[in-house]
Design a protein around this nucleic acid. Sequence first.
DNA 1: CTGAAAGCGCTAACAC
DNA 2: GTGTTAGCGCTTTCAG
Lengths: 387, 387
Amino acid sequence: MIRCPKCNQVHAINRSGIVRGMQRYFCKDCASYFTITNNTKPAPEVTGNKKHITTIGDIARALNISKSTVSRALHEHGDINAATKKAVTDMARKLHYTPNLLAQSLVKSRSNTIGIIVPEFLTYFFPTVIIGATEVATKAGFNVVICQSQESLKTEIANVNVLLANRVEGVLISMTKETKTFDHFRSLERHGVPMVFYNRVCEEIDCPKVLVNDYDGAFKATTHLIQAGFMNIAHIAGPVSLRLSNNRLNGYMDALKKNGLSVKKSLILHTDLSTEGTKQCAEKLLSMKNRPDAIFCVNDPAAIQVMLMAKQKGIKIPEELGVVGFSNDPMASIIEPSLTTVSQPVADLGRTAMRLLIASIKNGTESKEPIYLETELIIRASSVMAT
Amino acid sequence: MIRCPKCNQVHAINRSGIVRGMQRYFCKDCASYFTITNNTKPAPEVTGNKKHITTIGDIARALNISKSTVSRALHEHGDINAATKKAVTDMARKLHYTPNLLAQSLVKSRSNTIGIIVPEFLTYFFPTVIIGATEVATKAGFNVVICQSQESLKTEIANVNVLLANRVEGVLISMTKETKTFDHFRSLERHGVPMVFYNRVCEEIDCPKVLVNDYDGAFKATTHLIQAGFMNIAHIAGPVSLRLSNNRLNGYMDALKKNGLSVKKSLILHTDLSTEGTKQCAEKLLSMKNRPDAIFCVNDPAAIQVMLMAKQKGIKIPEELGVVGFSNDPMASIIEPSLTTVSQPVADLGRTAMRLLIASIKNGTESKEPIYLETELIIRASSVMAT
DNA sequence: CTGAAAGCGCTAACAC
DNA sequence: GTGTTAGCGCTTTCAG
């Protein structure tokens, strides 16, 4: 409701363009032009040393228009006068306006943010997953916040709470090796936040999961060792709490059985995945009276520990000890002899998981059948005698 | 203003405890107890399939008290009746209340969040910095959001904008190798968001910086090569855009000069840090007619590329080629021969940077003298003839 | 010790 | 096409 400052009436007012950034009006009654200067709120005082951050209101005031118009101009939002829009965007630039996502999220109750929880990111595996996942999320217009649980359940719970408090729209999770209670995941369910598990999945939660075909990878790896002539093959397995450990263990055992070899409990050791834990397993296996002639390890870092210890003990690889790892870590091709390993489509794992997550954010419930990505055996020097 | 439902008066009302989670009142006039059930807003309907997320208002309604009281009860906020507080916290648990950080941040204009920008995190360096920095931030009560610029200026700018839009309270930055314009950093300055640069610092911005003593590390490394008997030492340097490249280059050159060796421009090559780029440098140096007898590399990944190529060409390390890297990557101790390198206090770098950042968030401007952390030369097999 | 009310920055009907 | 209004969920004076 614009009132003419001269004739004080309100019905015969027209807009007449924008001059020096201010909306200009024309009163048809008294035939005069005017701009309105006194706004509801005074311009912010420069009190104290706190920097004032430009808001949509500042732009509105500077232009003598309403906040809604500014909001619309900034968002390609339906009908908006081209001149107004230009005035607004120019003024926004001039005042260095940055939208406040917190406020936007609050009113829209959508934060446009997705959380990713990784147990660690010192080895190449999880960073690579993150890169793949982020790529997909960014393309879909989501921001990503990365949390590392550091293999600690307590931290994982804290991570979930932070993500929840920040009202993320979905979470990608790979559990810690010590996660055996799942209330924090249920908490996400309760809040209606979709989850997708990848790599280290939680059986108890009904949601999409993306895995590598661990069983098949392990089966191929073990079969390869057998075909290469090894007869007494040990396995350093992962923590029993992780399903992937069991899948790889089963692949190993089935390969032995299928080839007529017996499964010896004494040759199956579980590491907690820490360097120390793995070293102990290696030590135990390598100092047996009836030493295994090959070891299939749950992952490459473990295989590398085995190789280092074997070297230290003067055990020749592969002549006296065949070694195979899992994951095709960059280290595997650097170490000597180079390490035979099972490669996984790591970035793809991230991409697939993120795609599923975004689908469940958008369409509600998704197919909950776990998705398995295939592995590839990469044969290198650690498992094959030079010919 | 509580009105008695029986006698309809308003002055003689007393609170009389909380029963079944509801505030109970007593009217002295008609001597009757009552609770008030009709609240300003009706309880949220379970419309559609959108999950309702418990708010402070839900708790207030359930207990027939005001939102302010709930807020206070939830925050140890001054005077609050112990019974009320218990009722509130119990009800909060019962309704699975999770505070909305977006709303809190909005009203407090403090997000309690700090951003960390890393150029990449596939090698161990940046993840380790992040772990150190996160540790300090968490202790100080800040959340951390990690952004990876993937060595792309465009992504770096996008990262800054996301952090800005999310109103982070401070940012830890290590630039991409291609960052040569700095408007996005100025944008942070303008918004009053403190920054601290680490490792790859920006000269143009006046703020705290944390670095490793690159010059000294390079000087020690080069001096070591000279003392080990190498005479014709090349250097694969980093991108000129990064100050650390120049610092390491200067350390290399000064060490040569100080030991009476001449600096040969032809033996100084710049890599862009990509595997491909480094390979080209290595190829060039290793196929010179007058091949250098040692190479000091700007970092370990580069040194490892050199070693791999040398092996491929049948050049013996260290007999025919001494190699020294920088950063003590885990790979350095795995490769054979093991790689001599300059180790940096990486996690400490992160911790120090985060401490400085938190200080500038809390106290405003900080000391802006760059801080240098010391390095240590780790001598391994790649630079020392077996005796 | 507690309630009412204002407002953080922004969007989204609803009017005109 | 644009202004008005009413919140999003929460904290924080200001009164009692």
